[in-house]
Structures are given as C-alpha cells and as structure tokens.
Write a protein that binds this DNA or RNA. Structure first.
Lengths: 350, 350
DNA sequence: TTGTATGCGTTATCAG
DNA sequence: CTGATAACGCATACAA
C-alpha cells in the first residue's frame, strides 16, 4: 500500500497544512487568509502571514485550479512571434490582462494549422480561461473544438457569428495603399499577398481590386498578384524574384501584405540594382517600428496594434451575451519608398 | 453538506471516469491507455480510444500535475519581448523544448526586477519544470528564491557558480567593435550603454576600455560613456541628444549596447542632419535581422541567438550534477554605418 | 491484462 | 471568526 504520490520537484515545499501547523490554526484559516483576508481576524491573519513567510510558502496553482475549475491563464496564438507586429499586439494583450491579473500563455503557430491545433489542445488541457486566436486558416475547426469544451474565444483578424472578434478593415487598408500607388501614376502593380487561407489576405486582395476599379481601370491589367506560402522576408524576396523573372511588362510598384515581406522585396530589388522608389515603389502593411528606419523609409498601412490586443482581451473577459465585433480602420502612412520626389531621408507624417 | 465543487468552465467536460464508463473499463485502464499504452491489450485500447474520441476527452493538466508533482512547462524571462534579439532567442528555446515536448511560458520583465519577481512567483506556483532567466539585475535574489523551492535554473547572459549558464563573451564583442572604430581613426567614441546592473553592460564597458588600451590610448580621453536607464530606441535617442548637447568635443563615433538603441541614436543623428557614417559612425550589438536593412546598414556585433536559446534549454533539461557554463564568442559584422568609404547602399559580408 | 482504492494540495460548506 | 472535512480529476501500487 505504498503510494509514491507527490513529485520529486516539490520535495520539501511547504503546503497550506504546514503553514497551518506553524501558525497554530486550521488549513481553512490559512486558505481564508489567502483568498478572503477580510474574514480573518487581524491577529490570526498576522500569525498566518508570518508563518507563510518563514516557510517560503508558495501556492500550488494546480491544486487550486483543480478545486476551483478554472485558471487565471489566457492562451493566445499569433501567426509569427518574430514579426514585430505581433509583439506589439502582445503588449496590448498583456496590458489589459494585467488589470484582471491573468497571465498569458503565448504560442506562435507559424501559420501552421497543425501547430495551431496542438496549442489549442494544450490550452484546453491547461484549462485556460479563454483563448485569443489569430487563425492560420479556416477558424471553423478550432472554433468548434473550443466551443465543445466551453472555452471562450475571441478571434483576431477573422470573423464568425459564433464568437466575438476584433478586426481591422483590411479592404479599406489595401484600398488606401493601392489608390495611393495609382495616384502616383503606377499602372502595373505587383501584389505580394500571403496565403489565401487567411481572411486578411483575401480582404487585402479585395481592397486592391476595388481601388483599381475606383480609378476606372481594369484590375486584371493593373494588378499582378502572387500568393506567398508564408509571410516572411525570405518568401517575399523569392516571390518577387520569381515575378520579375517572368516575361512581360514589369511592375513599377509593389504592394506587400506586410512589412516583413516588404523587407524581403526590398532586398531583392536592391540585389537587382533597382532603385527605390525611382524604379519600383513599395508599400507595406502593419507599420512596424522598423518601417520608418529602413534604408528607404517604408510607406505602410498602420494598424492600431496595441489597441487590437487590448480590445480583444476586453471582449474575452467581459464576455457579452451576444458576440461582439470590433473593427478598426487602418491608416496609410506615406514615406519615401513610394514618394518619387524629394530627398530619400525626408520624413513626414507620424 | 452541499459542496459546490468543480468549476463552471468544465461543466460538461468528459473525465477519465466518463471515458471508462463508455468503454466499459476502469479508470485505471483509461489512464494506462494514455500513459502506458503498451500495457493495454489492443482491443481494449481501441475501445478506450474510440470512447475518448466520442466524448472529446481532454486531459486535465492540473489534476495530472497535482498527482505527479511536476509539469511539462518551462518558464523563461526575457528582458524585452519587443526586441527581435529575444524573439530569435525564443525560437531557439522552443526548438529545443519541442524535443522533450515541454511548453514554454514566456514573460518579458522589461528590465524591471519587480516584474521579474512577480513572474518568478508565477512560475513557482505553476510548478514549472525549470526556469530560463535573463536577469534584470543582480541574479542573487531570484536565484536563491528558486533554489529554496528546488526549481532548476539556467542563467542567460549572467553567471553564478550555483547554477548553469549560457553567455556570450561580451568583453570580446565590445573589444571588436571599439577596435574597429579606432582602426577607422575615431578618437572620440561615445558608448551608449545600458544600466550597469546588467552584467552584459558592464562587460561591454570593460571590452571597450580594453580596446582603447590595446591601441595605446587613454580610455578616459577616448571614451565618453552614457548609461541608459533602459535599452530602447527612445532612451537611445534621448541619451545621444543629451550627450551632444554637452559642451566640449563631439564624438565621431557611437558604439551602442544593442541595435534597438542604435536605431534611436540614428534617429537623433538624422534629426540633427548629421550624416552616417561621414559625420558620425555607429556600431550596434546583436545583429538583429533588421540591422542590415536600416537606412544605413548597421554594423553590429552578432550573437548566435538561436544557439543561445537552444543550449540554455539543453543545460536545463540535462541537469548535470555540476553547473556548466557555456560561452559563445560573438562576431563583428561591418556594414556601411561604420565604413567611411564606398556608396552607402553597398553591402558586404553576411 | 484489468480493477480497486488512495492521496496529491486546495477550497468551500457547514457546524461550532 | 475558526475548525473539520469532503470533494476536484488523475496516476499509481497492488490485488485479482
């Protein structure tokens, strides 16, 4: 009848029981001191607190969570933690989370639905209080998984009528970017897009299309699109190389699905000795902090990264009866990479 | 005697008990199917697995952890998650962690010892299997806290004879950077350093000093150092502004404690219409992916970010009897920001 | 090969 | 205001 029980890690870790013994009270009182201090007499509370200090008492979150059924953790899945856009988003998330003193379990799906599913399971096993999801593809599957388990979700950059979501009007964002390029006289515009599985990519394609139509031009003639398998500098560079190697008229401008891809594009332009913006203009998306510091400061569509994260958590923790949808409007910031005249180092808005 | 028990979250979540009932076996058999499948007969195992699928069974990590005493999570504290250096490090950490299928709990201390301490407590409460720590100051306190609780630690960019650590030879790194600037003829070099609480900052100061001595010059005359309260673009910019506003001879070169600070410095130079590198040369540290894409490609001391993270986890999970210390040697990458001749857009090494 | 029974550390109920 | 005690879901020793 020898149970091994207890792990090796917590060998000599003080439990509530030990604190109780030392303070000469019951475990219930210790627990109350911890969770309902107002119900404990000042003197006893002091004794208990002293005992806790002396024994280096640390709560056992597993035991607590097992008992109460929910944790103070929130899970978040972002597409790519290396992208400064997502680290800025994470800041917003953490700031709002701190107010409810929850902590964040962040995972980077790297746009891989399988990784995403794995992290989903992890979150479920951990009993997170909720999940913020930037889906790698169709959110239907992860959504039904979480809903079956009763875990609240807020979608980022995706929508569903089942759950709340926070989005950016990417149609408008892309429209601004492409309109701007058309205004500059560009009539052959490459669009380095991400995988069409991502709604934000489809929306940006839509916005680009609309902008061309609004200028009374034929989108099929003006836009030459390329879908990248993932959104990294490397794929952006390879994508543009591929596009430029095709026969036919070359684009005079490139609109990129995000700034990291734009960095790859710029790298490729430079390696071909194409001048930016004289030979080819470039506009990115996200307006990460590095955008304005690049060799040629990059025009970009700014998203309110911090607010996105903040609002998403707010929806999650507030949990309205009806799913709510918040939409932000992005703002094009024009810099030298798409402004043909004036000194390259010249800085303008923002 | 009505116990509320169980939380609201997991209201209708299948437990091992439910799976057992459905499969017509005992809970022990279900548990075995999960953790020791080889001990279960093929037929029963199939029945159990089917039942799990039908019920959407998800393990309860809290209960499991409470029983076995340790979790499969590892905690990591980085100084600043917005800095691409740390996201690259995190990649290395995750890659190694995946091999032991552990998951990562990442927190950004923002160089604040209080935040660091809070996360430390969180890790302890969660019963993490170990901690990777980039300390915000003197590691003595967090170290003794964790050791009291029996939680293994590996230090990053800090050392102690109590625990294993992974470092970079920052003395050598700074020496290379400053030697290079001296070789270019600079005799008045500003050093925008971080807080002296950080060992890596003290080491880099030491390396800078040594480089000047090695050139037979007087460090006090050549180096003008400034300690920034934190290492961000904003503090870097403010620091340089402050320094340039002082009376006396102006520096002709700036060595920055990291690339993000260098970005701020460059911003300030630009706002004063000082040309890079003709008026002032700049060298950064870390060689983040953006360094070579900046307006003027930035010379920087490259650290093996991925390997740093990977090795740290390896030490943590291997847990040698004796603390081990791994030291990497960084490598200066020279780019246009510190090379006075040749066209600015010219790219060389790497 | 499978089933029975027990305890991990905590919290909440209820009685004193 | 405090104490005794039963669960929370799971993994294990041991019996069958």
């Amino acid at each position: 009848m020898m149970l091994t029980g207890g792990g090796d890690l917590a060998e000599n870790r003080a439990r509530i029981r030990d604190v109780a013994a030392r303070a000469g009270v019951s475990t219930a009182t210790v627990s109350n001191t911890l969770n309902h201090p107002e119900q404990v007499a000042g003197a006893t509370r002091a004794r208990v607190e002293q005992a806790m200090a002396e024994l280096n008492f640390v709560k056992n979150a597993s035991a607590r969570q097992l008992r109460v059924g929910r944790s103070l953790m929130v899970g978040a899945i972002v597409l790519d933690i290396s992208n400064p856009f997502y680290t800025a988003l994470i800041r917003g998330i953490e700031d709002r989370l701190a107010a409810d003193d929850c902590t964040l379990l962040i995972c980077s799906s790297d746009e891989d639905p399988e990784r995403e599913a794995r992290f989903m399971r992890l979150f479920a096993e951990q009993g997170v209080r909720g999940v913020l999801l930037t889906p790698s593809g169709d959110p239907a599957e992860p959504l039904s998984y979480l809903s079956r388990l009763g875990i609240p979700v807020v979608l980022l950059d995706a929508e569903s009528d089942q759950v709340s979501s926070v989005s950016v009007d990417h149609v408008a964002g892309a429209r601004q970017a492409v309109s701007h390029l058309l205004d500059q006289g560009h009539r052959r515009i490459a669009f380095m897009n991400g995988p069409p599985d991502l709604r934000q990519c489809r929306d940006r394609a839509q916005g680009a299309w609309e902008a061309v139509l609004a200028h009374g031009l034929d989108p099929a003639a003006v836009l030459v699109s390329q879908s990248l398998a993932s959104m990294s500098a490397a794929t952006g560079q390879a994508g543009l190389a591929n596009l430029l190697d095709q026969p036919g008229p070359k684009p005079t401008a490139v609109f990129c699905v995000n700034d990291v891809v734009a960095m790859g594009v710029i790298r490729e332009l430079r390696s071909r000795h194409l001048a930016l913006p004289q030979d080819v203009a470039v506009v990115g998306y996200d307006d990460i902090p590095f955008a304005e510091e690049l060799i040629t400061p990059l025009s970009s569509v700014r998203q309110p990264m911090h607010d996105l994260g903040w609002s998403a958590v707010d929806l999650l923790l507030t949990e309205p009866d009806q799913p709510r949808h918040i939409t932000f409007t992005p703002q094009l910031v024009v810099r030298a990479s798409s402004r043909p005249f004036g000194p390259a180092g010249d800085r303008t808005q923002v």
